[in-house]
Amino acid sequence: MSIGHTLLGLLESGPRHGYDLKRAFDEKFGHDRPLHYGQVYSTMSRLLKNGLVEVDGIEAGGGPERKRYAITEAGITDVQRWLATPEKPEPYLQSTLYTKVVLALLTDRNAADILDSQRSEHLRMMRILTDRKRKGDLADQLICDHALFHLEADLRWLELTTARLGKLAEAVAK
């Protein structure tokens, strides 16, 4: 996920302080990975440098400097472009697993064990998500469903690879 674009998108509804941005991000998108303040400020200074945001005001006070940021026209165009561009399909973890399976076959280890353990690990995560989905609201359900479908795709790959281990072993032995 692009943090810069997400923070820009959050600024579209009105200027905010860095702290407010972090809180909004964490509430909406950061259930598992809340942002660090450092991430927020480094991202904002990059956006500032690129002209996608501007400083709308600085609050004086005893604490650290509190800048209020506003999105620029260029920033809005950038968010729009990001939203309109489909994400590249990620290779996820197949390449790593494939490497492990092939290495196991090459070194006479049990490749099916690697795949079984991975399936179990995937299912463990799917149980957590299914449980969260069951207890959550519609937003939680949709977010969990997305993750579940991706994990399921990985699992289908694991099943297919398991079914083809014999052929794969012949192929890598050549």
Binding site: E121, T130, L148
Partner: peptide, 28 residues
Amino acid sequence: THEARVAAYSDREIVVRDGKSRDMERVV
């Protein structure tokens, strides 16, 4: 079941292959 999304409603799984079963909780 052969569907992972359905199996995700279980507490644990065993895998059957070639007539042999494997209790994944004892493996992992």
